[in-house]
Write a protein that binds this DNA or RNA. Structure first.
Length: 421
DNA sequence: TCTGGGGTCCTAGGACCC
DNA sequence: TCTGGGGTCCTAGGACCC
């Protein structure tokens, strides 16, 4: 008997996952990209973060640096795009709105996937999955794949298999049939089994998901972790991860970037951190939240000798959501970890220990009369939606954001909205 | 020359307390 | 001054996810 784990089989849940999401977004606005190899690049055009089926077939790997496959671009006519997250975020919102028609309590798991509880749905669930696909495609132009089973881990597996075999939708509810599919899934493809655990399992003769499903509980608990034990129970059809409360506050909010060039000066680095803080704090205030701790980190290139990287955390009694007040903490932290003579390639600000701004614990010594004034100022700043720069943000404008091939912001900026002629 | 960004959760070990 | 065990809390780091 395991504390906290029941043995009840779960009700059906669907995982809807967009196919090659960023690439599909680009294709919606340029149908000529269909059937051609397309790749979307990360910030600074550093590496591949989305690949069309044709690009995968050319051997371009996820997160592979651009310079390693750049020579393939011309001969194969690969279309390359800088990431356009404003567009992808907007398209994601549209897809999720369609999914809510099918299940009001969807759980948005990432920008391109969501879980749909299907307990109330009667009839043929596989047909229902296909209906979801058609509707999403019709409303947004984004192709999706649907996996349905009794736990989120199995729904993930069903989705993976459906993508692999180009089925569009796969429904795994019968245990014997599910086992036959699981025998085909290598450990590394199971949700929750990463590189380390994959290698560990393979070295001990665990070659597929069915073997892991049948592994003894105490052995899993002892040699892997409680996380993996939950994964194993989920493979058996027993839910151990529930639908997450969407109204809950995030635990942390981060803004981090790699730089297009090395940054050495303290003031320049401070200016970059200030701009990261401004973005993170704006996102936090949008949730009506405040942070009780701030972390900053700075790193040199990990690919060069003489690496230096460091981080520091500052605690704020009572919490804060006011950018200048958070900035004062960031300045102190930078003094602690900055080392001259280093070419910094990456830095970031993380707002941590996030609480609701309305009922945050009060610091007895805080001057409450200033609160209302600060709040009004921040509201005014946020209304300007990022068009205001704090004085300390102005340094190093060229260090962030090389984007050579960005598509237009089709859905989020009026001047880019497609004209129908 | 060129190598992403934003999260969550667990675990081990140290500090501290009784 | 010496001795000990056990609990809790915090933090840094690791593993994993998309």
């Amino acid at each position: 008997m395991l504390f906290g784990l029941s043995s009840e089989k779960g009700a059906p849940v669907a995982l809807v996952d967009c196919n090659n999401f960023y690439v599909s977004c680009e294709r919606v606005f340029d149908p000529r990209l269909r059937g051609r190899p397309v790749v979307v690049l990360s910030n600074n055009d550093g590496c591949a973060i989305a690949r069309s089926r044709e690009a995968k077939a050319l051997g371009i790997r996820m997160a592979q640096p651009f310079f390693e496959w750049q020579k393939l671009v011309a001969p194969h006519g690969i279309r390359v795009f800088s990431a356009n997250f404003a567009l992808y975020g907007d398209m994601s919102w549209r897809v999720m709105e369609v999914l809510r028609e099918f299940a009001p309590d969807i759980e948005i798991y990432s920008i391109d996937e969501a879980f749909l509880p299907l307990a109330g749905v009667t009839g043929d669930l596989e047909a229902y999955g296909h209906k979801i696909r058609q509707r999403v495609y019709q409303c947004t132009g984004i192709p999706v794949t649907v996996g349905i089973s009794r736990t989120r881990t199995l729904a993930k597996a069903a989705n993976h298999l459906a993508k692999d075999k180009a089925l569009g939708c796969l429904c795994l509810l019968d245990e014997a049939a599910t086992d036959r599919w699981l025998a085909d899934i290598p450990p590394g493809e199971i949700w929750g089994i990463g590189r380390k655990k994959r290698d560990w399992l393979l070295a001990r003769g665990y070659l597929n998901a069915l073997q892991l499903k049948n592994a003894p509980d105490d052995w899993v608990r002892r040699n892997l972790s409680v996380m993996t034990l939950r994964t194993v129970h989920e493979l058996r059809g027993i839910p151990c991860s529930s639908i997450v409360d969407e109204s809950a506050l995030q635990g942390s909010i981060a803004t981090t970037r790699s730089f297009a060039r090395g940054v050495t000066g303290k003031d320049e680095l401070g200016g970059l951190l200030a701009s990261f803080l401004a973005v993170a704090a704006r996102r936090m205030r949008a949730q009506g939240a405040a942070a009780r701790a701030v972390q900053i980190f700075v790193q040199a290139s990990p690919f060069k000798p003489g690496y230096y990287g460091n981080s520091a955390v500052g605690v704020i009694a009572g919490g804060a959501d006011h950018t200048p007040r958070l900035m004062a903490v960031v300045r102190v932290l930078l003094e602690r970890i900055y080392r001259p003579g280093i070419a910094y390639k990456r830095a970031g600000v993380v707002l941590m220990d996030i609480v609701s701004a309305g009922n945050r614990a009060d610091d007895l010594f805080r001057e409450r009369q200033n609160d209302a004034r600060e709040a009004r100022l921040m509201k005014a700043v946020d209304r300007l939606d990022g068009r205001v720069l704090w004085a300390s943000e102005m340094a190093a404008p060229d260090a962030v954001g090389k984007q050579s091939w960005r598509s237009m912001k089709f859905t989020t900026r009026w001047q880019d909205v497609l004209a129908v002629v």
